[in-house]
Structure formats: C-alpha cells, structure tokens
Amino acid sequence: MTRLEPTAAAAPHSPDRDEVVLALDALDTLWLQVGGTLCNLACRHCFISCGPRNDSHAFMDVAAAAAALRDAEARGVKDIYFTGGEPFLHPQIRELIDLALAVGPLTILTNGMLIDAAMAAWLRERFDASRYSLELRVSLDGTSARSNDPVRGRGTFTAIVEALQRLAAVGLSPVVTVTEVDGVDAGSRERFAQLLRDAGLRQPRLKFLAPFRIGREARRGRPYDPSERLTHEAVDAQGLAALQCASSRMVTARGVWPCPILIDDDGARLGDALGDGLRPIALRSPACHTCYVEGVTCRT
C-alpha cells in the first residue's frame, strides 16, 4: 500500500481552532518551481512577483528536481507540472523535461517568448517520442496589445502570439491561459479562440483563471479583504477534496510548499524535501479563499 497517511506532525504553525486544516489525500501531482521566481517578464498581476531580478527562489538544480521526481514516483504520482518564473530561462530545461517525461505526463507553464524555432522543434520531437503527454500552457491576458501589454509588459502581446505561431508551425497545440484581471465578458472566449485560430492553432485550447490578490496583483488590482478567509462555516468536505492542495505539493529550490501560489509565504513552507511536506496544511492564506470560492485549480 502506498496510500499516504497524514503524519502526526502539526500543520505549519499550530492551527488555531478557526483555521481550516486539510490533509493530503494522496500525491497525485508534483509541481516543480524549476524557474524559481526568475522571469523574463514582470507581469503586474504576478502573485509571486516574479521578474528578472527576483531570485527569492532560484532555478532548481537538476539533482534536486531529479530527487523530487524519484520520491514522487515512489509515491505513485500521476502527473508533473513545471512552472516559475519562466521555466525556459533555465539553462538545463531540456534535461529537466526529459527527466519528468520519464516519470509521467508533464505540463509546462510558460509565457512562450523564449521558445524559438529550434526549441519548438525539439519540443515537438519530445512530444512525439514520449508515451506521456507533454503539455504547454502559454499565458496571454488579452486579445490585443492594448489589453495584454499593460498587464504583461510592452511588446509582449506580439511576442507571445509569435511564440504561438512557432508552436503551431510544428503542430503543437498549447493551452492558452488567461488571467481574468478585469473580468471576462460573454464574448471573451470566442475572441481568444479566434486569435488562436489566426495564429495557426487548429485546436484552440483555453483556460481562464481568477487572479490571486497577492504579490503584485494586490497592488495592480486590490488586496484581499479581511473577510476573504476560509472558515469552517464556509467549507464542506466535497469542496475541500476538490482543492488542488488535497492531492499535490510544490517543490522549489528552497523546499516544499502546499501549492504554486503560496511560495512567497514563508509560513506556508512545509519542509526541505518532498517527504517532509506531506502533512496536513492550514488553509489560512486569503488565496485559499480564491481557490475554494472560484473553484480554481492550477492544473490544466
């Protein structure tokens, strides 16, 4: 039996009685912050304030990533996600991708801009060679420079669309992830789908996400209101079981966290290695409120 049972250890900080505590049901998903908090962009809605000079989480070294993958594999992990920062900034990203695909299906969250024609061709080769799916999730927040660039940076709309064109040219079909920074109207989905078709993607795939009001987004939009916290009265077992952190953990160069959203919160750190981070967690961050209420999952 490899089913994971919560250890007797307490959640990080001793939870008070009002805090909702969630045990890990099983380690289905392993997140690796391979790009750390280093990014070629400095998006104004980034919940962990990534940028070219933010090395609060460094690139993961290959040995650390391999150790986490081996541990997760022994625990029966179902799938793997790479994020950052920008994963394609990592100088050994190809080696990391191969390591992950040897264990299971891999999704990479990226802004796409560093995927040149050679990298796109290499990704297509790996897509074909692997028996597991290699998914790319490309972030784009508007259907024009006017709507995207104020959030992601000047020139990024054109650069990201060109990246989508390079992926389309090799027959890859990324999922485009849209953060609903200013809400979406009924026509948003179709406008994005048309943009992707125009970029040459024959199967437009879209994922819309609610923003997390922490990091830079707290300044761009608004911070959480004190009332936006999970309480026992506000949750039920079914809703808690659906949370991503009920079945996943995030490993960065600095240790283990419950999820990709909370790696700026030192109080949420669970330990040094994956095995240290499997104990129950207290859902005390206001970002947990967004996951629960909006039904957000970082999974594809």
């Binding site: 490899t2 089913r3 099983a26 299971g104």
Partner: peptide, 17 residues
C-alpha cells in the same frame, strides 16, 4: 484515466491500494 496522462507509478498505486 487517459493513456497519455496516467503514469505507470500512479497505476501501480491504484493496483496496490
């Protein structure tokens, strides 16, 4: 349980459990 999205490790866990 999709073929391309389900690792061997996960299937072993299911069978064990």
């Amino acid at each position: 349980l999709w073929e391309s999205a389900t690792s061997d490790a996960f299937l072993r866990r299911l069978l064990d459990d």
